[in-house]
């Protein structure tokens, strides 16, 4: 089974889940605001540094990259072609590749990569129950928090089931190499239905397992064995995140730095 969480003792692992959530939220927000590709390149490099510092192997970074890059690249190319800006560098008939288009495309692709790296850094270094504790502490009702935790817990299982289902189809003679496009979708449809049926069955079992553990006992205020509390260093992290985000925001709003996809400094 391939899970998200990679056990470890690094400072990223030990940081309070709420701090990490603050980092995820503020950095994703900034990624949407900023436009210049160089900023994204440095963000991606910074994130890779964070991965290494968290003791995550290069294979993990590569796995995220492999999942996102094809889509990111496609988006970048489409953007560059469909929204030309400025003078053409190369032109094939009506299709123009412009500097501005390229910059915007790169921004789009890198933004996707950056977001994926941020979210997966969070998932790789935070146990799902820790995420649950974090969001519950922030005021999300426990059943909702548990639902998030269970979703994270079962995504790899569902993924695994899907792989097995497709294998089972191929073992029955389905030749996926010969089907393309819509035909492929149609060929996979029975598998998706099987996945739905087996997931429904699994969720029934899960419901029984929850009941057997007295989940939702009426009139009981749930307690928690391991509570989370901010350490001084977590306050420091939070302060740094706040200051960093505020600084970038200030430069962006006051001086327009990073607001344009082509010129970094206006």
């Amino acid at each position: 089974m391939v899970e998200f969480y990679q056990p470890g003792e690094s400072w990223v692992h030990r940081a309070d889940p709420r701090v990490k959530l603050a980092f995820v939220a503020s950095s994703i927000l900034l990624l949407f605001l900023l436009q210049h590709p160089l900023i994204f390149v440095s963000a991606v490099l910074g994130l890779i540094g964070l991965y290494r510092s968290a003791g995550l192997p290069a294979s993990r970074i590569w796995r995220v990259g492999r999942a996102v890059l094809p889509v990111g690249f496609l988006l970048a190319v489409l953007r560059a072609i469909l929204y030309p800006a400025g003078t053409a560098l190369i032109a094939f008939g009506p299709v123009q590749i412009t500097g501005g288009g390229l910059a915007q495309g790169a921004t789009l692709g890198l933004r996707l990569l950056g977001m994926a790296l941020i979210i997966f850094l969070w998932l790789f270094t935070t146990e799902s129950q820790s995420i649950v504790r974090g969001v519950v502490k922030l005021g999300v009702p426990y059943p909702w928090g548990l639902a998030i935790g269970l979703a994270l817990r079962f995504i790899p299982t569902i993924r695994e089931s899907y792989d097995t289902i497709v294998q089972a189809q191929r073992a029955r003679g389905l030749d996926l190499d010969r089907t393309r496009g819509l035909g492929r979708v149609r060929a996979l449809l029975p598998g998706l239905i099987a996945l739905m049926v087996s997931s429904l069955r699994a969720s029934e079992n899960l419901a029984r397992a929850l009941e057997a553990r007295a989940f939702g006992a009426p009139g009981v205020r749930r307690s928690t064995l391991v509570d989370i509390a901010f350490r001084p260093v977590d306050w420091l992290f939070l302060l740094l995140i706040g200051l960093g985000a505020a600084a970038i925001l200030l430069f962006y709003l006051r001086f327009g730095i990073g607001a344009d996809p082509i010129r970094l400094f206006p």
């Binding site: 899970e3 969480y5 146990e127 799902s128 129950q129 548990l146 935790g149 269970l150 817990r153 299982t157 699994a202 079992n205 899960l206 397992a209 929850l210 057997a212 553990r213 007295a214 989940f215 939702g216 006992a217 009981v220 205020r221 749930r222 307690s223 928690t224 064995l225 391991v226 509570d227």
Partner: peptide
């Protein structure tokens, strides 16, 4: 496999008593 709800053994075993609202020392 299907009855596991948590990602550590400790949290898994504590889940039931937590639902009963027991004090931490008891859990």
């Amino acid at each position: 496999e299907v009855q596991f709800l948590q990602t550590t053994v400790e949290a898994e075993v504590a889940f039931g008593p937590e639902n009963l609202g027991l004090p931490v020392s008891e859990i």
